[in-house]
């Protein structure tokens, strides 16, 4: 246990920049841009912001209950969207973390130091997976909460400044607690979802003698292009769209959290539409869909097999050239 905690700390020390500073930077940028926007708006338009010829404060006061519900929905979509920003940054960090996870130590020869310690290759690989699936997401989770609190405060103050009751229009209808709960439950679900990606990236990282990024990305791209050609040239019906969606996307990009829809299929987190808003994706419904889809578990099995491959290469691969 002590070994495990120490190993995890070591991952954090090495990756403080990605695990800790990256979400903080995202928060800082989002909050700063918001404040700037609001301040500029305040000074150029002032309290004359009107809708249909009436000051906003007046409109709200006279708003019927069903309209207020729509406001609540918008706010919760907005909050989920903010979480998505942090999660997207987390995805980028994890993608590069995993690509370097078993390669960098061979490149800088520090693997000779790590291997002089009584830690098995399996333990090492496992710690890195836990760092990617629990440690970094937990930090991002806290960062998401921080972002929500700051944004609700900033926008609330802006409302209050403009004679709009923030309690009624913002703080009351917002449901951050529910969102935070779903995000927390989502951490282990996303871990299972990400297994194929974790497996592939770590396998390449443990195996490549150089340029792990190129191997990780171009092998699947070239495989896909070849499949598409075959598809076009012959009547052999290898469904290449299936490949791009179920193999390529899952293998490379399911390390990005919440890249599934309410049916448990892959979708890139940034394509939203009316019925699949961030608030719909970050929901217990989509989490349940992921867990009850067979493909998720097939992917997890494939990912685990590749992780076993990564352990094998961690043990037998020598230094990079």
């Amino acid at each position: 246990m002590n070994t495990f905690v120490t190993q995890l700390k070591r991952e954090y020390w090495e990756n403080r920049g990605g695990f800790f500073r990256a979400p903080i930077v995202v928060i800082g940028v989002v909050v700063l841009i918001t404040i700037m926007g609001l301040v500029v708006g305040q000074f150029s338009v002032g309290s004359h912001i009107q809708m249909m010829g009436m000051p906003i404060s007046k409109i709200i006061d006279g708003m019927p209950a069903d309209k207020l519900e729509g406001v609540a929905r918008s706010i919760n979509i907005g909050l989920a969207g903010m979480s998505m920003l942090v999660q997207f940054a987390l995805g980028i960090v994890l993608f590069f973390y995993l690509i370097g996870s078993l390669f960098d130590e061979r490149k800088d020869r520090s693997v000779l130091f790590w291997k002089s310690m009584p830690v098995s290759d399996f333990q090492t690989v496992l710690t890195k997976i836990v760092a990617a699936t629990f440690l970094a997401p937990a930090i991002a989770w806290v960062a998401g909460i921080l972002l929500h609190v700051l944004m609700l405060a900033v926008i609330g103050i802006f409302f209050w400044f403009n004679d709009v009751n923030p309690m009624k229009l913002l703080w009351g209808p917002a449901e951050p607690l529910k969102l935070w709960g779903v995000m927390l439950v989502g951490i282990p679900v996303n871990a299972i979802w990400a297994l194929p990606s974790i497996g592939w990236l770590m396998l390449v990282s443990s195996w490549a003698r150089g340029k792990p990024f190129l191997w990780a990305v171009f092998v699947p791209v070239i495989a896909g292009i070849l499949l598409t050609w075959f598809d076009a040239l012959s009547s052999l019906s290898i469904p290449d769209t299936w490949y791009w969606k179920e193999v390529f996307a899952r293998g490379l990009f399911s390390i990005f959290p919440w890249t599934f829809d309410t049916a448990g299929a892959f979708r890139f987190g940034l394509e939203f539409s009316k019925d699949s808003t961030p608030a719909d994706l970050v929901s217990l419904k989509s989490l349940l869909a992921v867990l009850t889809t067979l493909k998720t578990w097939l992917g997890a099995a494939a990912g685990s097999a590749m992780i076993a491959g990564a352990v094998y290469f961690r043990r037998y691969r020598e230094l990079t050239d």
Binding site: N2, T3, V5, T6, Q7, K9, R10, W13, E14, E105, D108, R109, S110, V111, L112, F113, M117, P118, V119
Partner: peptide, 18 residues
């Protein structure tokens, strides 16, 4: 072969831990 990012304090804590 010590990793370039590690601090003296961290290296000691790591070895002590494992």
């Amino acid at each position: 072969v010590l990793p370039r990012w590690i601090r003296v304090r961290e290296a000691i804590e790591y070895v002590a831990g494992v």
